[in-house]
Design a protein around this nucleic acid. Sequence first.
DNA 1: GTGGGTGCAAATAATTTGCACGGTA
DNA 2: TACCGTGCAAATTATTTGCACCCAC
Lengths: 133, 133
Amino acid sequence: MKAQDIKKAGLKVTLPRLQVLEYLEKHPGMHFTADELFTQLRQSSSEIGLATIYRVLNQFETAGLVVKHQFDNGHSVYELDTGEHHDHMVDVDSGEVTEFYSKQLEDLQVKLAKDYGYELIDHNMVLYVKKAK
Amino acid sequence: MKAQDIKKAGLKVTLPRLQVLEYLEKHPGMHFTADELFTQLRQSSSEIGLATIYRVLNQFETAGLVVKHQFDNGHSVYELDTGEHHDHMVDVDSGEVTEFYSKQLEDLQVKLAKDYGYELIDHNMVLYVKKAK
DNA sequence: GTGGGTGCAAATAATTTGCACGGTA
DNA sequence: TACCGTGCAAATTATTTGCACCCAC
């Protein structure tokens, strides 16, 4: 439940925090920029400020409640952390984002890091695609 | 040769353009932010402006002379386009960037896109790593 | 000569921070 | 009540743009 998750993160349960978390839960698998969340929540007769959204999202990211992704267009998008890792495909024509997971890909990355004398901590992988004809 | 490459891109051969291209050629396999290039070139008694660096780098990127990468820290880095595609590993402790290439990885990405009904246009993959103990 | 190119400073855009007020524990 | 959290506006940071001058062709 939402309030519990916020408490577990060592944060006070406040209205803005609940609203952000609730909005993300209502739209599973979707990605939002801070500004999109701001606009959406404002329409729900909320007095929330953009700066608060950024602060809350950063806290949630640190707490592992939310995942932040950086696509090539510059801004960052956030989504609820479901615990299941996945990567993204972005349709360059429509901007549509598809999540995918490939065990083979994950394993290959670990192997590649090892080949170069490293240990894999994290990765960022985005495929830019077009609808096949 | 440098001047030729610039001409081929349909651009006039000017001092700033030569200086940027020359600096990148002198440091193969290295990545620079626009600001780093600015500082470096200024030290070489150049009157170049930061805005010009951004303009020139964008033109070079469009022309395919230079590749632009966006790591998670926010700013973009540029390197000479050698024509050989590769991906990057970033050491999260030192910030050091290692280039690597894996045919297996490239093939897997094409296959993944196809599995989802897409055609792969481009990709962005960065491994965040730590030196193995 | 002329139009593209440049440096500088001002304009944007995304995100962060300072501050006085408000709400949670 | 004490202090964290908030909204707002101002500050930052990376990048882009307007403009008068300059230079490659």
